[in-house]
Design a protein around this nucleic acid. Structure first.
Length: 292
DNA sequence: CGGTTTTGACCAGCGC
DNA sequence: GCGCTGGTCAAAACCG
């Protein structure tokens, strides 16, 4: 079942990399605003992230699908420019009846609007992505930001549709996709794309009584832990590359704050586990840990 | 009335 | 080249 889940997720997220062992990412940590804690050697192997010209500095690649290319890591150094998308006039309409110039222009503008920006030898730019699984009843988890749904698609091999959301804040182009795991419908898979450039609009200010929380959030100025997650959910940042070999020594510096947060999130979790596993426990699904 | 959701259509990329 | 799939657009519907 784990395999099924893993495979399906591989197809779900194209957080791919070309080299299994090399790509390591801090996506989740990055979202939490702790990317400045990355050690230099760690950065060196984040080849993909280095290519990204945006303020995003990392992403969490899942197990790279062998057939996939570095799609999500493709980088376009210049903004895709709508290169006038040479649409050669809607011939049928023009043929059938004389269309007013205004109408023609209107039509062409409509068509242009729908056309993606012309690319010249370049793939569409994509923000680094970060995905995690959450056990939750509701599909759209409150994470402190305001989202506007802009699409929904049926997912292949899954009865559950995938929803597409955009951050409603102007000039913030963060997107997220939400879907349920086919193999475990109780799990919601959320994929973030991009990074918020603004504080959470609906989160209360920090330091409101909960010293633990303030400790945990102090390291993440822009991305605070979703309240719902803290109360009800068990976050499982979904990553295959965050395995101990990559993870342990690189993440040690941020262990404290993150572990702290986790204790808040899941008071039911055994303290011994947390102590034993540390951050790893927070990141890796339990079944992965058991396999170790 | 403004913002959000729904939903069908369109486009790009990829595999065969 | 064709078909499939993911991602996005945008008009209409919905909602507070």
């Amino acid at each position: 079942m784990d395999d099924v889940l893993g495979n399906s997720l591989q197809s779900i997220f194209d957080l791919s990399s070309s080299e299994d062992e090399k790509i390591v990412s801090l996506g989740f940590m990055d979202l939490l605003g702790v990317q400045d804690l990355i050690s230099p050697p760690f950065l060196e192997i984040m080849t993909a992230a280095q290519q990204v010209p945006s303020l995003i500095s990392s992403q969490v690649p899942l197990t790279p699908p062998p057939s996939k290319k570095m799609d999500s890591f493709e980088v376009i150094n210049q903004p895709a420019t709508p290169n006038s998308s040479s649409i050669s006039s809607a011939s049928s309409e023009a043929f059938n009846e004389p269309v007013k110039v205004d109408d023609q222009e209107e039509n062409q503008q409509k068509i242009k609007k729908r056309l993606k920006p012309k690319k010249t030898n370049q793939k569409r730019q994509r923000e680094p992505r970060f995905a995690f699984m959450t056990k939750s009843e509701v599909d759209h988890l409150e994470d402190g930001y305001r989202w506007r749904k802009y699409g929904q698609k049926a997912v292949k091999n899954s009865p559950f549709p995938r929803s597409y959301y955009r951050c409603t804040t102007a000039s913030c182009h963060v997107k997220k996709r939400v879907e349920r795991s086919f193999s475990d419908p109780s799990i919601v898979i959320t994929t973030y794309e991009g990074q918020h450039i603004h504080p959470s609009p609906i989160m209360p200010p920090p330091n409101l009584g909960n010293s633990h929380l303030s400790t945990a959030t102090s390291a993440m100025p822009m991305q605070r832990t979703p309240p719902n997650y803290q109360q009800h959910l068990r976050q499982q940042p979904f990553t295959d590359s965050l395995r101990p070999s990559n993870f342990g020594h690189n993440m040690g510096s941020i262990n404290n704050s993150f572990l702290h947060e986790k204790r808040i999130c899941t008071p039911g979790a055994g303290p011994s586990l947390l102590e034993d596993r540390g951050l790893l426990q927070d990141i890796l699904p339990s079944y992965m840990l058991k396999e170790e």
